[in-house]
């Protein structure tokens, strides 16, 4: 019978531990908040992963991990015909476009990134199907799970902390005006500049994330750093409705409101 349940009750860390200790062979399917992931194992080693509708073929992985450009991928695909990933990999190596190391490092990075992303999923159905493995033509790895679990747990803690700091990605950002401070004088990396270029009270953090093709962890990390550095602040985007509970002073006219507050002031003074 397949191991199945919900991540609420049995976390990704616990699942990977189980697979590692029991040296399981098969594929773990996890249905996350917006997409599903498939992660395959052989005798407790991580061998393959695929996320949602992402192109999990060798060419797709090489583009995603920056080994080749999208244009090069198009050319390769048009010449590849119906070659399997293994055949295509050999072709790229023999033609001198990439080394074996490049290809293996790209696949490794892709697989591990998917698994790390799973650590941020705290709710979702999972199922482990014994002996179900990826298609034969895929290039698989044999990666030890121990280090991945340790790093994943660390990222999970970071994720929890970032979620606490930035609970709502539908809020917007604005620059903090400080005398003498100039964003141009701050050393930012390329990713941070990409985010900064979209900062505007009209753009929600989620919109900035999508415009930069980032995931929630990446955008939260950058925004958190910018907030910590005192460069930006979280603001409510225009038109964002207030929670229905948000009501202010009883709706009476201004003079009555002032009179009410002045009575309170007099009373507190006299205590």
């Amino acid at each position: 019978m397949a191991v199945k349940g919900n991540l609420r009750d049995f976390s990704v860390t616990q699942l990977l531990n189980l697979i590692n200790l029991a040296r399981k062979t098969g594929t773990l399917t996890v249905e996350g908040p917006n997409e599903a992931a498939w992660v395959s194992f052989q005798a407790g080693k991580l061998i393959y992963a695929q996320l949602g509708n992402e192109d999990g073929t060798l060419v797709g992985i090489l583009v995603r991990t920056g080994r080749i450009t999208a244009k090069q991928a198009q050319v390769i695909k048009s010449h590849a015909g119906d070659k399997s990933d293994k055949e295509l990999g050999l072709l790229l190596i023999n033609a001198g476009y990439l080394t074996q190391q490049d290809i293996l490092a790209g696949i490794r990075q892709y697989i591990i990134d998917i698994v790390y992303r799973l650590f941020t999923w705290v709710d979702g159905f999972f199922r482990f199907d014994n002996d179900v493995l990826p298609p034969d033509d895929r290039i698989v790895m044999r990666l030890d799970l121990e280090n991945i679990i340790i790093e994943g747990a660390r990222r999970m803690r970071e994720w929890e902390q970032l979620q606490e700091e930035l609970p709502n990605l539908d809020m917007a950002l604005d620059f903090i005006e400080r005398p003498g401070a100039n964003i141009r004088d701050v050393n930012l990396n390329v990713e941070e500049w990409k985010v900064v270029s979209y900062i505007n009270p009209k753009n929600s953090i989620r919109q900035i994330m999508k415009a930069n093709k980032m995931n929630e962890l990446e955008i939260r990390r950058i925004v958190y750093a910018l907030i910590q550095a005192g460069l930006v602040e979280v603001v409510r985007p225009p038109g964002m409705p207030l929670p229905p509970q948000a009501r202010q002073v009883p709706a009476v006219d201004k003079r009555q409101q002032s009179s009410l507050v002045n009575r309170l002031i007099d009373r507190i003074r006299s205590l």
Partner: peptide
Amino acid sequence: QTFRAYAPT
């Protein structure tokens, strides 16, 4: 921040 979000009082 949470309370500010509930009501801008």
